[in-house]
């Protein structure tokens, strides 16, 4: 059987915006309507017009970034105790911006010009691992009315990674390719020593960004599991399921609801899916499930925080230090 080979660096697959696509994007920016530029791997369940190509620094719209605490829907205002020990999207953007700046410099020292795309053009649906707005399944009725169980599509095409030659990959990563089983690169490039894990590794080490968040992540996972073993949450889920049954849906819990209606990419979100999603939220409201579930979890997490206070506090401090170091690096 053929072993999976390293990806050839520098050879981009079809779909990456080349010069033609960038010219078209400039025209799009000038207000001309364009039909389908091939999307770059993002699914678009709503079947809407594909996102514009060629994200630029001007496209970083922080108002579109996810909020740590939802400000709409049934999870509005809800916070869990472990969240203050997590890294937020906002933190990660500062760190990543600084890292790319350091990597650009480091690569230039080896004679490579690398053009990284701007950070923050395509924000994720959630700002931290707690994922409050979708933690107990969907909670936003306005989103459900448009997208069913899906999320809004990106408004801008996700930028591709920079084009890199084999030599550039070796210096950037310390490996001969961008796959987990790639061989280590030689120790030097043109007589100059490559840092451990390349310019990329060096930049994250310099910022102190290589933080292991396993503790807060694992505790956050465990509290969600334990909360479903409590009588109040079990009763709430049963009540929700009963409400859904009255509306014609046989579904045991809100996670199963997400897989209830078959989805087809390349087609518009079906009316069936939208109806089911709206029913899900209306039943959550009727049974007060989100508040009941959150209350049970908050109690569990309060205990977890008490039991792990020192280690969690150290994690929080490491994160704050990394963000601070990143800000300093950006100031030059």
């Amino acid at each position: 059987m053929p072993r999976r080979t390293s990806r050839e660096p520098g050879r981009l697959r079809p779909g990456t915006p080349g010069p033609l696509a960038r010219s078209l994007a400039a025209l799009a920016g000038a207000g001309l309507a364009l039909t389908a530029l091939t999307g770059c791997g993002d699914t678009d369940p709503a079947g809407q017009a594909p996102p514009r190509a060629g994200a630029a620094a001007a496209e970083v719209d922080e108002s579109k970034w996810p909020k740590v605490t939802p400000d709409t829907g049934l999870a509005r205002g809800l916070v869990l105790p472990l969240q203050q020990y997590m890294q937020t999207y906002q933190d990660s953007v500062v760190i990543e911006r600084a890292a790319r700046s350091l990597q650009t410099q480091c690569m230039a020292d080896f004679g490579f010009t690398v053009a990284f795309p701007p950070v923050g053009t395509n924000p994720p649906p959630n700002a931290d691992d707690a994922n409050m707005s979708r933690r107990y399944g969907i909670t936003d009725r306005a989103m459900a009315e448009k997208y069913g169980f899906g999320i809004p599509p990106d408004t801008v095409e996700h930028p591709p990674p920079p084009k890199l030659t084999a030599a550039a990959v070796a210096v950037l990563t310390g490996r001969k390719g961008l796959d987990p089983r790639a061989e280590p690169a030689p120790a030097t490039y043109q007589g100059k020593k490559i840092p451990k894990d390349g310019c990329q590794g060096a930049s994250f080490d310099r910022i102190g960004a290589r933080i292991d968040f396993a503790l807060s992540s694992r505790l956050d996972h465990d509290s969600l599991v334990k909360s479903q073993e409590t009588p109040e949450v079990q009763a709430g889920i049963r009540a929700w399921s009963g409400c859904m049954k009255k509306k014609g849906y046989a579904v045991a819990d809100p996670y199963a609801a997400i897989d209830l209606i078959p989805r087809v990419e390349g087609a518009e979100t079906s009316g069936k899916e939208i109806s089911a999603a709206v029913a899900d939220i209306d039943c959550k409201k009727e049974t007060d499930l989100v508040r009941v579930w959150h209350t049970a979890e908050a109690a569990i997490q309060t205990q977890q925080v008490e039991q792990n206070q020192l280690a969690l506090q150290q994690l929080k401090e490491k994160n704050a230090a990394a963000v601070k170091a990143a800000e300093a690096a950006l100031r030059g």
């Binding site: 990543e96 959630n126 994922n131 894990d197 990329q200 933080i211 992540s217 997400i258």
Partner: peptide, 25 residues
């Protein structure tokens, strides 16, 4: 070389999620 990822414990980006950053090799 540029993107972070999150793995979610339920489909449809629901439930607890775990960051898999590209800070590590």
């Amino acid at each position: 070389t540029v993107d972070g990822y999150r793995v979610y414990y339920n489909s449809g980006y629901a439930g607890h999620s775990q960051s898999i950053p590209h800070y590590w090799s």
